[in-house]
Each structure stands twice: as structure tokens, then as C-alpha cells.
Amino acid sequence: MIINHPILGPRDSAEFTYMGDAALLDRPDWQAKDALAQFIDYGYLRDNPAGPHQELWYHEQGDRSFLVVTRDTTTHEISSVKLANDVARSRGRST
């Protein structure tokens, strides 16, 4: 697979480490009333779709960016690649 890095262009997937479902960006609020239930859901339940999947890839042998890659799990075709940092900000992650 080739991942089209938003900064560096097409790179061999062998340079990356897969880090799981991009839902891992949405870490729950520890002070929420149902924080424990939310963390269990966050930690363990996955959509696991057969089709487009948003997932995290870490460019470990490259620029150390985390990327949010949208990839079809039935064909391995990649339709979108973004910097995870930008995606996290756009989802309103702060402290």
C-alpha cells in the first residue's frame, strides 16, 4: 500500500505503524457522569466496518506524524489522508 502523506507525498506503508481506529481521537471526558462506561466503549468497542474506515497511521520511519487515513477495508483503497493533529483540533480536542 502507498499512503499519500499530506506533507511528504506518496510513501510506502512499510514506513508506518498502524495505530487503530481513528475513534481513538475521541477520548472521553474523565469527569463525565458516565465516564467509566464511556471509557469502556472507547477502549473496547469498534465499528469495524467492511468498507471505508477512518484509522490512524504513525509515520514512525518518517516525520513522526500521526495521520488519519480513510481506507476501504475490502479493497485497501485509500480515499483521504489528513494530519491527525488537524483532525483532532477540528474535533475540538483541547485539554
Binding site: L45, R46, P49, A50, T73
Partner: peptide
């Protein structure tokens, strides 16, 4: 499992 149980609206502690 993920594909089938999604038809019952279940999310699983599983990735394929």
C-alpha cells in the same frame, strides 16, 4: 463477525 453482527446493530470488541 463484525459484518454480520452489524446487521443486528451490535458493535463488538473485535477488529478484523
Amino acid at each position: 463477525s463484525g459484518r454480520l453482527m452489524a446487521k443486528a446493530n451490535m458493535r463488538l470488541p473485535i477488529e478484523s
